[in-house]
Design a protein around this nucleic acid. Structure first.
Lengths: 135, 135
DNA sequence: TTAAAACTATATAGTAGCTATAAGGTCAAT
DNA sequence: ATTGACCTTATAGCTACTATATAGTTTTAA
């Protein structure tokens, strides 16, 4: 299996595969005589794993960490669960921050309507005057 | 007022101020004979405006756009409001996406406890097997 | 058979918004 | 005279790719 086929089967760009290889997330595959990379089923699974992790919002560093656990299958999986717990709290704090931001933006937006000149715009005035509530 | 004082008064790094200047968000200030930048009150207001916009999550491009409106104060402020509306929907869709992600992560986490080996870890299995629900 | 299309390779730069580092010039105080 | 705090520019680093340039290889079609 060459890089293009692997890419298509997982739904990523060939560049991304080479990028993961350089980052140490995918093991360097064997090469044909002409230098083309040759991939196996294992590579496909590894790549799919990376992609699913990315969809879950994990960073490449976190994925690397998960891979290191996979390489040591008889350890307790405490660290895996802890990584996920950390990620969940990270996502939750992002949600909280964005909800606060949304409130702030909505209240700013309410301070204007479309029938004014820029000079009298409530939105711009609100930002300029800095009457922004914390967090 | 020199760059260090401006930076301290607004609470940013001096590097950030030079960066905004290069990006065209802050007008190039006058220089002393020795080349040091000299800032006025206006620069302070401009910088504070940028920072408040950043806190609201606006991109530098959006800030640039707002500044272009400020330079034309007798236009109607429709575009300002539209920019904010767009930003609000952007924030809302981020929230929605993160909430879906949180659900997914929590359900993944529920598939394991700490008393297993990595080999049997429900979390890793969940990711590897790809039984991930869309969005 | 040959020429074009489609694939592969590497290296490099760009994206966003800074932050950090290096290497140097300036200024006030000791 | 030298230390320290400030200023200058230029450059690289961060994340996770994506795009571009340039070149070699394979496959397909005429």
């Amino acid at each position: 299996m060459r890089i293009g086929q692997l890419a298509q089967s997982v739904g990523v760009d060939t560049q991304t595969i080479r990028f993961y290889e350089r980052q140490g997330l995918l093991p360097p595959p064997d090469r044909q005589e002409n230098g083309y990379r040759v991939y196996t089923e294992k590579h496909g699974e590894g790549l799919a794993f990376i992609r699913r992790c990315r969809i879950l919002g994990l960073s490449l560093a976190e994925i690397h960490e998960l891979q290191s656990y996979q390489d040591d299958p008889h350890q307790p999986c405490t660290a895996v669960n802890a990584l996920l717990d950390d990620h969940i709290s990270h996502v939750r704090s992002q949600i909280t921050a964005l909800q606060a931001l949304e409130k702030q933006l909505v209240s700013l937006r309410a301070s204007c309507n479309d029938d004014r000149e820029v000079e009298a715009c409530g939105v711009l005035a609100g930002i300029s005057e800095g009457n922004m509530h914390q967090q």
